[in-house]
Design a protein around this nucleic acid. Structure first.
Lengths: 341, 341
DNA sequence: CTGTTAGCGCCTTCAC
DNA sequence: GTGAAGGCGCTAACAG
């Protein structure tokens, strides 16, 4: 539809200079006299000239655009990370193309293929659950082999060598569990809807270590793997009725909230009967009743960091350098009303 | 970095055909013999050839990319809309570039300028609060004048003539208020952190009409305009202490939740002492305690609709047609525990 | 100081 | 059937 797209060519005709003179003048090239510069700039302003980005991209073989692949925009954690990425990218004149994998391997692959043909300069990605289950990371390697850098965040894999930004999941979970133990909890369970992911696994391990250190035993039975949030209402109350539980560590925010509401639904009190700690400091945690004690993953910051990393990578000439760093962002435990002191 | 980007030219050299023959062969042009087609296609597959999108874009003067400008990704409503847009766009082979205006006029303008130079084929936008306050919509008109279509959703303005997708804010608010009146509420207030926006205004009007119809009076004092969420904790409890209130209509989800928590914090019961109804059926409403009665804005659906509209527009040749339709999506009231029956 | 030329990768007449 | 040539809009090396 571009009715009135002004081009260098048209400006050249209008000004009676050559295309390249116009181009140079607008770029403030010292070769051009101030007189013609002014003339041309005035004309450009008059006609509201804006250089065509696509043509520039073709010429420069670069797009100033980053592809962002996230599993689920409705999880507050990912929304926060996205906000961080967008902010940092915009600040440096980069755009982001966002694809939502919806936890699907196929969509993740397709999205990356779609973008890897010149649409973006690199990727920021958090791997989908299904990809973890399939253990197939070829699409990621393919992109890297094409020369496009990848930064993984949160959900990462050792199978692919690239920059990564993660949180200290193990320690966070270990710390959260210990917090409950110190508060006197003796029967702490772990619930996780993300058990297949890298972060899910590390969080279980942290929990296990804390339990082992203190009670010399971990029962696998006390680790509740939830495949789908919809199963919560079935699995959890049943378990709570049959077993003595006085503490819950939940691997993400939503499951912590579900857990709390189900506990309350059984007529029990949080934290008096059962303490609950979750991950991700989101809008749910802050506004639940009682407010949720959570491990703050600093999502926005994490997004900024991932973006900084990829921009570094894109703007560095030193191709030789190994880009296989892992940055660990320390979480903070935000203590609120859902856990005993 | 694009180490190994295979191009038509390279394929031509490798196959000893001309560039144009290769191009035609890969496009299944009937001019080319099956024999050479097969040869070339095999080679293309072998070298994992993918046409360079940027070059295609330059040629076709189109990007198959839509610019999406939203005020705030952390509000669940906008996340839902974004999910809908992304899904619909992807299904039709379109990408989305997301910009977050953060309710800032300047960022909205900059984002649009940045994208309006060939990066996108059109825009889907929800206007920022600050833009409403400034009442300056020139940047939107400029984009349209350049030939790029815009679809506005939710927060729209009559000042710009373009396609719009909104919900029936007036009726929804009217209905929600009436619901409380029918349940016996006599002193219903309205709280709004989005009073400057198009939707904020319509929601107040719906509330006012319901109050007027039933009580023959509306006091402006009972409409609480909140500039910033942080002010809630100050303004609301004070008001509740000084005034008899038994019902609250909140203009968005978060303020409904804040309201509920502050009410509970005062030692009052929801809904027994005060009923609360909010807008947006998000994750907060569903998981609050008590769960929130809300007006479901069908965000995902709204996003789909907006995307369909712009794709229609992009793929229609009939330039003559006036693109100034407004689609109204009907909300549904989801009744939960926060309002009396 | 200014203009000509060439080329980014692709597609599309138009010759042969 | 195949290839040469031109152009999308821009930049940059090289002439003048």
């Amino acid at each position: 539809m571009s009715n009135q797209m002004m081009t260098l060519k048209k400006l050249a005709e209008l000004s009676n200079f050559s295309i390249s003179t116009v181009s140079k003048a607008l770029a403030d090239n010292p070769e051009i006299s101030n007189k013609t510069k002014n003339k041309i700039k005035k004309l450009a302003k008059l006609y509201n000239y804006r250089p065509n980005i696509i043509a520039k991209n073709l010429k420069s073989r670069t797009t100033r655009t980053i592809g962002v692949i996230i599993p689920n925009i409705l999880a507050h954690f990912f929304a926060k990370v996205l906000a961080g990425i967008e902010k940092e990218a915009t600040q440096h004149g980069y755009n982001i193309i966002t694809c939502i994998s919806d936890e699907s391997y196929e969509k993740e692959v397709k999205s990356m293929e779609m973008l890897a043909n010149g649409s973006v300069d690199g990727f920021i990605i958090s791997i989908s659950k299904e990809t973890f289950i399939k253990e197939n990371y070829q699409h990621l390697q393919d992109v890297i082999d094409k020369g496009l850098p990848i930064v993984m965040f949160d959900r990462v894999t050792d199978e692919v060598s690239c920059d990564k930004v993660i949180i200290n999941d193990f320690e966070s979970s270990f710390g959260a569990t210990n917090r409950l133990i110190e508060a006197g909890c003796k029967n702490i369970i772990f619930v996780s809807p993300i058990h297949n992911t890298s972060v899910g696994l590390k969080r279980v391990e942290g929990y296990k270590k804390a339990i082992n250190d203190n009670f010399n035993k971990v029962s696998e039975r006390e680790i509740l793997i939830i495949e789908d949030y919809k199963q919560f209402a079935k699995i959890l109350p049943e378990f709570l009725k049959k077993n003595k539980v006085d503490g819950v560590i939940a691997a993400d925010e939503l499951s912590a909230i579900y857990t709390m509401n189900l506990i309350i639904g059984l007529g029990l009190k949080v934290p008096n009967d059962i303490s609950v700690i979750g991950f991700t400091d989101g809008i749910l945690a802050e506004n639940s009743n009682p407010p949720l004690t959570t491990v703050d993953q600093h999502g926005t910051n994490l997004g900024c960091m991932a973006t900084k990393k990829i921009l570094d990578r894109l703007n560095s000439e030193t191709e030789i350098k190994k880009y296989n760093t892992t940055t660990v962002i320390k979480t903070s435990l935000i203590v609120r009303g859902s856990s005993k002191e």
